[in-house]
Write a protein that binds this DNA or RNA. Structure first.
Lengths: 229, 229
DNA sequence: GAGTGGTCTAGACCACTTT
DNA sequence: AAGTGGTCTAGACCACTCA
């Protein structure tokens, strides 16, 4: 074994190419609207056949990262917001979409065994909007160790840095305990909407987050279709 | 235009094959554990190249319908439990999946202008589990006018009678008013998980339903992936 | 008209796992 | 040892749509 962990089982060519293209897109190097090189161009660049890049581009299109049209070519799509699913949860975008002014504050931050443990208060128009507690796995996201999450809240930062392959949301309603009530500025016992989200990449847990909203004024919305397409 | 609606845009070969294999699996013709023919066998059967069936099988594996292993071949996986979505909401299945005994009661039923207006109490092990209020559009579902919903609750009946093309869920947490509290047998002011679901077929609203759950013991779960495969 | 993606082929070699 | 999926190639033709 030449590698320390043996975590690299000789990735396939199309996996390598896909990761390379994902990096271009997620990093903003290729911003929304950017015209992706043609399949023939990519095949030449990577020194492989067109079928191989075709497979990659098909995957990226399925993931909603690019839009492909004949003759017009492939362009990078804006955001990553609405998949056919309970959209990937991003409190910042949620506030901005509602026309609010967004700010956040990291309340605590701690590096534990294998993970970064965070709590974060999100505000809309300076009013507490959502309390978030999150754990990020350092195996999956090593960069998180030294990231202060000052410019961007954790969820937004992660979306821009880590592609995900699977996610799960669990939603419950709970009565506010004294602690949550104080953080969110509501009465103890008031209903809370609590969403727990887990995100994986290739079977490895990337992050787990718990979002607590005051129940009254908040709604989670999911829009979807029965057929994958 | 030779076809009345022009709905058949000459499906691709791999789409046809995929639909054929899906039909075998979803119909139970190929039950869980069934050994799917090898790629070479399928290619011969469909008279196409192995690459084409390989693409199909890759999609089916991504959708969780089959498990593929080298040498061992592909086998049909059990269930279809996790759809890629907040699964279509069916209180009866939800109760049965939790190992409970399900019963329901139609509390009111009224035919209004263009719709059927229903309220229904769902019970798990004889205990109130969910209160549902629903409107069904008669334009989209004419059969609903005379359906008593005695054998099956409205949601289950609709799933079996009406295909849908689009749906939306909205979820909030609310404090129980006196009425809801009485129906569900909980204390007024206790947190409720409220889900409002709208379902369309080709742009026309089919039904709109509001489900009210006691917040404490209930969770809604959605599991999904960004890439179809 | 020409460039792009959509699809399909007929092979090939390899990795893995069961026999 | 043999059969399976995993991957990749070097072409090919078509459909679409932009210029």
């Amino acid at each position: 074994m030449t590698s320390a962990k043996g975590e690299e089982p000789a990735k396939s060519l199309h996996d390598q190419i896909r990761e390379d293209l994902e990096a271009h897109i997620l990093s903003g190097d290729w911003p929304p609207g950017y015209r992706v090189p043609s399949e023939l161009g990519l095949a030449k660049h990577y020194g492989c056949s067109r079928m191989t890049v075709n497979k990659v581009m098909t995957q990226l299109a399925g993931a909603g990262l690019v839009l492909r049209r004949r003759r017009a070519g492939s362009v990078v799509l804006p955001q990553r917001s609405q998949n056919a699913v309970l959209e990937i949860h991003n409190v910042k975008d949620e506030v901005l979409a509602a026309g609010g002014w967004y700010s956040h504050e990291i309340l605590s931050r701690r590096v534990t065994d294998g993970g970064v443990d965070l709590s974060c208060l999100h505000r809309k128009d300076s009013v507490p909007f959502c309390f978030e507690h999150r754990v990020i796995a350092l195996d999956a996201v090593p960069d998180a160790r030294d990231e202060p999450f000052a410019d961007q809240p954790p969820g937004t930062w992660l979306l821009a840095h880590v592609p995900w392959s699977e996610a799960e949301n669990e939603i419950t309603a709970e009565a506010a305990d004294a602690d949550s009530a104080a953080r969110l500025g509501i009465a103890p016992g008031a209903p809370l909407l609590v969403m727990t989200r887990r995100t994986w990449k290739n079977g490895d847990l990337v992050t787990e987050a718990r979002f607590v909203y005051p129940g009254g004024g908040h709604r989670l919305r999911a829009r979807f279709t029965p057929t994958p397409g």
